[in-house]
């Protein structure tokens, strides 16, 4: 099974997808429309690029700081959370899902994901 299918099977995950670092492709499953999934891919890709570049800048100024290269990021909202690791994103209903479980699962599954295309 793909990581997206695995994620969607987890409690609280309402949508999940993957985007290409180049920005030309995305795929998804869940409650989003195609257009909203496209937008989510653009947003997630932009933030992933940003945090990686920020990490790179921090690394240049303070080598071996433990943050670079970034594995991912999480935005925790009032009732929904967006969790992104490597080029995989997922949207979680806070009332039904465990962010710790999902971050742990994604981090574990994507540990060796290549980041050189970022």
């Amino acid at each position: 099974m793909s990581i997206v299918t695995d994620l969607l099977a987890r409690p609280g995950v309402i949508a999940a997808g993957e985007y290409a670092y180049r920005g030309d492709r995305f795929s998804y499953r869940g409650v989003l429309t195609e257009e909203h999934a496209r937008m989510a891919s653009i947003i997630c890709r932009a933030t992933t690029m940003s945090v990686n570049m920020e990490g790179g800048m921090l690394e240049a100024l303070r080598p071996r700081n433990g943050l670079h290269p970034a594995r991912g990021w999480v935005v925790y909202g009032p009732s929904h959370t967006v969790c992104v690791m490597a080029n995989v994103f997922c949207m979680i209903d806070n009332a039904k899902g465990s962010i710790n479980d999902i971050v742990r699962f994604m981090r574990g599954t994507l540990t060796h994901a290549s980041t050189h295309l970022i």
Binding site: G66, A70, G77
Partner: peptide, 10 residues
């Protein structure tokens, strides 16, 4: 409003 932002570093 965003409740928290988390960066998962290396």
């Amino acid at each position: 409003p965003v409740r928290a932002f988390t960066l998962v570093g290396f």
